[in-house]
Amino acid sequence: MKKNVYMTNLRDERQNAWEGILNYFRKRSMWMLYYCTGCGAVELPPTMTTRFDMERFGMGPMATPRQADLLLITGYLSVKTLKRVIRSYEQMQDPKYLVGFGSCPINGGIYWDTYPVINHLEMFLPVDMSIAGCMPRPQAILDSFEKLRDEIQEGKAVGYKRYEKHYDWYKANQDKVLNREDAVLQPWEDPFADKPTLEALQAGEKMEEGEDK
């Protein structure tokens, strides 16, 4: 029961009439920045080109975060990439939407038990829509964008407001992973950390056989 809490809160922000009119334009013209972190990026060319033609909904790729409304996390996120994704997301201008692509941003996917890949994206950034599947086909992608358009119109896709409101919560989570100071399991004691050993090695001296064992 308690486990589901993190994904379902704070999606109902009220909007006024003017915001509703603006949302109509926002949903009809979504420019996306797709962050090719993983395998999901390969599903986007078929979605964009002749057969499925994303542009009929007014969606198109954009070159920089400044111009984009929609950030696609296409695939797994390693810790190192997470840092860049956060920076890209923060460079984007409000209103902005974040879509997690495939199962990896949801719960880690097939990489759930590996050491560099984070498991839940929504702990670090507010995800407006997640597409399950490994990988989602273009039909699923278009379907989810359809749902996202509805949510934007209804004023439910307010991840950017959530991010502003609970910035300290997100920032704390980000810091826990990115600026880790201690070892998670057991600290690594480098046998070559001490200077004399290192200098002896670099000078070409042989290590004593007793120490090697």
């Binding site: 560099p116 880790r180 070892a183 399991l185 057991q186």
Partner: peptide, 8 residues
């Protein structure tokens, strides 16, 4: 490759 790694 690793980011801020302290473990084994």
């Amino acid at each position: 490759f690793l980011h801020n790694w302290h473990d084994l």
